[in-house]
Design a protein around this nucleic acid. Structure first.
Lengths: 337, 337
DNA sequence: TTGTACGCGTTATCAT
DNA sequence: ATGATAACGCGTACAA
């Protein structure tokens, strides 16, 4: 029962006052080496570890940051968390995660439920609406928005340059000579998906070719469906650009399954560059997005804000990078590692 | 600045005492409907939300459970979190996640740093060693171990029946007539990987065929490597059984890339049934593991333990299920959804 | 039904 | 350098 050991027990054991114990354990200067030694020993012997809630209450710092996400599903989530976790642990911060499957109301709940639990908030709000009424969101808590359309409005925010990325991909496809390009869209109310769609649409408009948009939901299943829809269409497109890699893979497999050669008959492009995209055959051209880096940057912004060190770390949007992995014809060896 | 609103402010605004506010907000019976109404209004108007740390300190409950994982990488992590999150939110519990990349010492740190932050702990400890010295781990905190080899020793624990799953897969492959079966192993110190390996080895021993184990690390890259290693070997195996799907996919792509037909020339089997496995072509036979269900079950066990309702919910290990998706020859349509 | 007052475990401000 | 002691915000006996 090492659970109920308080700072008072340590004080008694070390024959000093609680104040001294606190000072010794928190590494303050005003403590004799000999006394500090005694305290440390007593603490270790009693398996003392400070009660976080009490400490927070008194010091007004929780050493935790809250992460509020729409859902905890898939590679995007895990990569984002990985990035956040990495810089959080570098700074000795804990992570309190919360998801809001419902919608905005739930998001608000999640955020206000974190009062007194965290020192700051990382919020991803890819939906159309505002994360919350603009001062309901920030009851004094520093907040960094991730991939929100309200970048730089009232809150610190950071995101992926989706529109620019989509334009870059379209430029690449067009440079390759493709004209009739279909697009597999993401969820309607997803802001990232919307930006990528706009990139596609603008490019097609400039090209003077009619757009061809298929519905999708950012998962393999909808990509697979879209792929099969394309196959049975009157005249197939020359290329398919999916709003993310999961759908691109689903589409790719639909093609492989039907015996359609990629990219010889139809080219397939994605967005995100998920790890698997690197090993899939046939190759998948995609826009590399450093999601883990996005999480890390967001966390760093928040922490900087907490330390009040930097006034405002430049909120540079992350620019995706084109990765071409089209493999025309069979190859025996390409990239290793 | 709605952050500093305390229960006292609400009390003043509603013209009652703090005790009454507390009772009204916590839905206790001893409160006049009229007074409760007044309190609720005041609380809403002031945007009051209780300070979690203070509440924890006083009530000795945090309404949070800690999740301690070896790392936050990949589909396994995200699925597990999804399951945990689901039942946690059903019970109004928050999630405090922590990873220990280093090793056991870091794990111990992570666990004891959660004192006063959580009501219970979910710990995944797939490594060979004990999660911690057996009473250092539990300073009064209820703990549920996930996929630990110390199932049912001192702590509640729950895991996947990896050995049985691997045996089932081997039985399937052998029934199909395969004899020379290679195995792509997982990380050396991973307990799940070890159990699956044992399942393979025992089956091969009973079959009287020499085993053929290739090293792997649970990622696509090592599967790809193993696949290519197999291709250049003197006489190729008839089937390859990978310790997880990621490696199976890497292997599969290596084969596709080399023009080797699956499963006609070599069959490929995996373990986990990750979502992508459903859409990959050629098809991948795998053992379906309900990871999200595993997380949910673990969370439920812990919560039951917290409510002290159930004495000990039967720690039934999760039995993986065989999923055959071998597709010999091209097909135009198979499963939909 | 409602109010007063104490305790939860720590940190920080005073004295000493 | 060290020791009392007052916050911190909330729950909850106990009293009224």
């Amino acid at each position: 029962m090492a659970g109920g050991v308080t700072i008072r027990d340590v004080a008694t054991a070390a024959q000093v006052s609680v104040a001294t114990v606190s000072r010794a354990l928190n590494g303050q200067a005003n403590v004799t080496a000999e006394v500090r030694q005694r305290v440390l020993e007593a603490a270790k012997r009693l398996q003392y570890s400070p009660h976080a809630a009490a400490r927070s209450l008194s010091s007004r710092r929780t050493h935790a940051i809250g992460v509020v996400l729409p859902d905890l599903y898939g590679e995007f989530f895990s990569e984002l968390m990985r990035g956040i976790d990495q810089v959080a642990r570098e700074h000795g911060m804990h992570l309190l995660v919360s998801s809001y499957h419902g919608h905005r109301d739930e998001q608000g709940m999640a955020m206000r439920a974190m009062r007194g639990r965290v020192d700051g908030l990382l919020v991803m709000s890819p939906y159309a609406a505002l994360p919350a009424s603009s001062d309901d969101i920030a009851p004094g808590l520093p907040v960094v928005l991730i991939n929100s359309q309200y970048a730089g409005e009232n809150f610190l925010s950071l995101g992926v340059a989706n529109y620019e990325g989509a334009r870059a991909m379209m430029a690449h496809l067009i440079a390759r000579g493709y004209r009739r390009i279909a697009f597999i869209a993401g969820p309607e109310d997803n802001f990232d998906a919307y930006q990528r769609l706009r990139g596609y649409q603008d490019a097609m408009a400039e090209l003077g070719v009619e757009e061809w948009v298929l519905p999708g939901a950012f998962d393999e299943a909808s990509g697979h469906r879209a792929g099969r829809a394309v196959l049975v269409a009157k005249d197939r497109p020359e290329a398919v650009f999916a709003a993310n890699d999961m759908m691109a893979l689903g589409c790719l497999f639909a093609f492989s399954q039907a015996g359609v050669r990629v990219p010889d008959e139809i080219a397939v492009a994605g967005f995100d560059d998920i790890p698997l995209a690197r090993f899939v055959y046939p190759g998948l051209t995609t826009m590399q997005v450093d999601i883990s880096g996005l999480g890390a940057s967001a966390a760093r912004m928040l922490l900087a804000r907490l330390s009040k060190q930097t006034p405002l770390p430049a909120p540079t949007p992350l620019l995706p990078q084109l990765v071409v992995r089209e493999s025309s014809g069979r190859q025996s060896g390409s990239d290793s590692s």
